[in-house]
């Protein structure tokens, strides 16, 4: 037993920062933010009238936004599956990671 440390795995889980773990968390956060911003923009263009006669979403706009977000996720899934299939066909494996694809 060493008096100098509690062993590297104990340090790992309670003290030291693993740069790769942090980097992956940052990448994931940025990806999700990017998709969110794209949905906000795209569904605003599709659903919100730019006459701005009132400050609230009207009934039609609200329903349109809900459906727009749902449909955007469906398209996200379809294209994710397509890219995964293409990656599998090209390299015998998925291009990045794999199972979490299209699930956002």
């Amino acid at each position: 037993m060493s008096i100098f440390g509690r062993g590297s795995s104990a340090v790992q889980s309670s003290g030291a920062i693993n740069p790769q773990t942090v980097e992956m968390a940052v990448t994931e956060l940025e990806m999700v933010t990017d998709v969110f911003n794209r949905i906000v923009n795209t569904c605003h263009n599709k659903c919100i009238s730019t006459r701005y006669a009132e400050p609230d979403l009207n009934k039609g706009e609200s329903v349109c936004v809900d459906r727009c977000v749902a449909k955007f996720f469906e398209v996200n899934k379809k294209i994710g599956e397509k890219l995964q299939a293409m990656g599998a066909a090209n390299s015998g494996g998925s291009p990045v990671g794999g199972s979490s694809f299209g699930g956002l």
């Binding site: 794209r38 795209t42 263009n45 659903c47 449909k71 955007f72 398209v75 294209i79």
Partner: peptide, 16 residues
């Protein structure tokens, strides 16, 4: 990936 989704959604989906 994200650009493809945005582009194709914008061009293809207009019925809500």
């Amino acid at each position: 990936y994200a650009g493809l989704v945005e582009r194709c959604f914008t061009s293809c989906c207009s019925d809500f």
